[in-house]
C-alpha cells in the first residue's frame, strides 16, 4: 500500500529524517512511536504531501507520489489528521466534513452529505453538526480531524496523536472506531504517545529516534527491545 524508500527530510542544516525506509502492506495497522523530535510528524507530512522531501521516494499502491500535491494524494486515498487541529473555523462542523466528502472522496449532493454525517456519527460529533468549528473545544477539534479524514474515504489513514488528553472511556471509543476502520480494510499509520491505545489496534510498531528507524516489529517485540528502552530511558538503564 505504502512504500517509503530512503526518505530524508532536512530543514536547513537540520536533518529531521535520515534514510527512512518503510513498507506497509494493504490492511496493516502500523503504530509509530518515538521521543519528541524523532521525526514522526515529519514522516506523516512527507507521506501526505503536506511537507517537503529532500531525498527518497514515497509510493502509494505502486505509484510514485513523491512530487504529487497533498490534495491529489488525498483523492488517491490518503486521509490524515493533523497533530495540531486545523478546523475550518468559520464553517460548521458538518461543512468541515462535507468538503472532505466532496473533494477527498469525490462524492456529490446527498451522497456527500450522507458520508459526512456518517463520519460525524462515527466520531461522536453528530450532535455538534451545526456548531461553528471555531467554537468547538480542543477535544472536539481532534475528533473533527478524524471525522474529516474518514469522510475522504481513505485507503491509507494517517493519524497524528489523536488520543492525547482523552479520558479512558473516550480513548476506548476511539480505539473501537479505529479498529472498525481496520476491519473495513483501511491501512493505518498511527503516531501516538498513548501506547496503551495504540497496541490495541496495531499489528506492528515502528520506533523512530533522531530521524531513523531504531526498531520495527510486533508491538511486544518492539516495546521489549533494548533499542527502544535506550531511546526512551537513556543508555544507563538498558
Amino acid at each position: 500500500m505504502l512504500e517509503v524508500e530512503h526518505l530524508a527530510v532536512s530543514f536547513g542544516t537540520l536533518r529531521v529524517l535520515d534514510d527512512v525506509s518503510l513498507a506497509i502492506p494493504p490492511g496493516q495497522a502500523v503504530g509509530i512511536v518515538g521521543p519528541n523530535g524523532a521525526g514522526k510528524s515529519t514522516l506523516i507530512n512527507a507521506v501526505s504531501g503536506t511537507g517537503q522531501v529532500s531525498r527518497g521516494t514515497v509510493r502509494l499502491a505502486g505509484r510514485d507520489v513523491t512530487h504529487t500535491s497533498a490534495a491529489r494524494r488525498c483523492r488517491w486515498g490518503i486521509g490524515r489528521s493533523h497533530q495540531i487541529p486545523r478546523p475550518f473555523g468559520d464553517l460548521s462542523v458538518f461543512e468541515n466534513v462535507l468538503v472532505a466528502a466532496e473533494r477527498g472522496a469525490g462524492l456529490r449532493g446527498r451522497d456527500a452529505a450522507a458520508q459526512a454525517l456518517r463520519s460525524l456519527e462515527a466520531t461522536g460529533l453528530l450532535s455538534a453538526a451545526n456548531t461553528m468549528a471555531g467554537a468547538v473545544p480542543l477535544l472536539g477539534r481532534k475528533r473533527l480531524e478524524l471525522a474529516r479524514a474518514l469522510a475522504t474515504s481513505p485507503q491509507l489513514l494517517l493519524l497524528d496523536e489523536i488520543a492525547g488528553g482523552l479520558t479512558e472511556g473516550e480513548a476506548d471509543e476511539l480505539v473501537s472506531t479505529v479498529l472498525s476502520l481496520k476491519q473495513a480494510g483501511v491501512t493505518i499509520m498511527w503516531i501516538e504517545h498513548v501506547v496503551k491505545a495504540l497496541v490495541q489496534v496495531v499489528d506492528r510498531l515502528v520506533c523512530l529516534a533522531f530521524g531513523r528507524i531504531v526498531a520495527d516489529g510486533s508491538p511486544e517485540e518492539v516495546l521489549a527491545s533494548r533499542e527502544v528502552a535506550e531511546v526512551y530511558l537513556g543508555g544507563a538503564l538498558a
Binding site: T50, R72, H82, R86, R148
Partner: peptide, 8 residues
Amino acid sequence: TAANSVGV
C-alpha cells in the same frame, strides 16, 4: 493546508 489535505 487543511483544505489541501482533505482533497481541495
